[in-house]
């Protein structure tokens, strides 16, 4: 198959994104009960690992490097979680779409040209902000005591940047070394330079 130069998602991109999302969806499903067990302590410590819920979006974008990958990845992961009957139910799908959209916006802001650690962390950070949008409607946030609210926001944004930004960046870097990532990357300028040598 020829590696297309177009920036549209082709079949390979879609399939790889969805499969990766399923892996994460499965992890979400397995992690869910563990996470629910940590929750009761009430001090919002669970927010630190909340970031793992936004991981699929930034990961897919870092891997595929095309517009739409982050949104598709996060939405598919959320959809998988709903279909596996994850706790929280149908709302997870909405969370996924909004988080994916926010992560996507960060990559779009750099015109899908910059995929560095800092951009990835910003993307995870944006995913966390996306999750707050729905939380606000859900009523998790309104009327919490001030210190508790701030604790929750700080922990989640931090967790988002690390778990959903830095961690996928490390993973993708390792996959690049393993030679897996360039199976799905669009052809870059350097690839053409190699041909011209």
């Amino acid at each position: 198959m020829s590696k297309s130069t177009s920036r549209k998602l082709n079949l390979t991109d879609i399939l790889v994104t969805i499969v990766v999302a399923l892996v994460f969806g499965l992890v979400f499903r397995l992690l869910g009960p563990v996470y629910d067990l940590v929750k009761p302590f009430g001090l919002q410590l669970d927010q630190l690992i909340y970031g793992f819920w936004f991981i699929a979006g930034p990961f897919a974008a870092l891997l595929i490097r095309k517009p739409g990958a982050a949104l598709l990845g996060e939405a598919a992961a959320a959809m998988a979680e709903v279909l596996f009957g994850g706790s929280g139910g149908i709302i997870n799908f909405y969370y996924g779409v909004v988080q994916g959209l926010f992560s996507e916006l960060i990559f779009a802001a750099w015109h899908y040209r910059k995929f560095t650690l800092s951009v990835a962390m910003l993307s995870g950070f944006a995913g966390a902000i996306g999750s707050f949008v729905i939380d606000l409607f859900y009523g998790y946030l309104a009327d919490l005591a001030g210190w508790n609210l701030i604790l929750s926001i700080v922990f989640r944004l931090l967790g988002g940047a690390i778990c959903a930004g830095a961690f996928p960046a490390v993973l993708v870097k390792a996959l690049e070394k393993m030679g897996v990532a360039n199976l799905v990357r669009p052809v870059s300028k350097e690839d053409y330079d190699v041909l011209n040598k």
């Binding site: 990766v20 399923l22 996959l175 897996v180 799905v184």
Partner: peptide, 10 residues
């Protein structure tokens, strides 16, 4: 898990 899944999907 990811490496194997990506290879298989591709």
């Amino acid at each position: 898990m990811l490496a194997q899944s990506i290879r298989r999907a591709q």
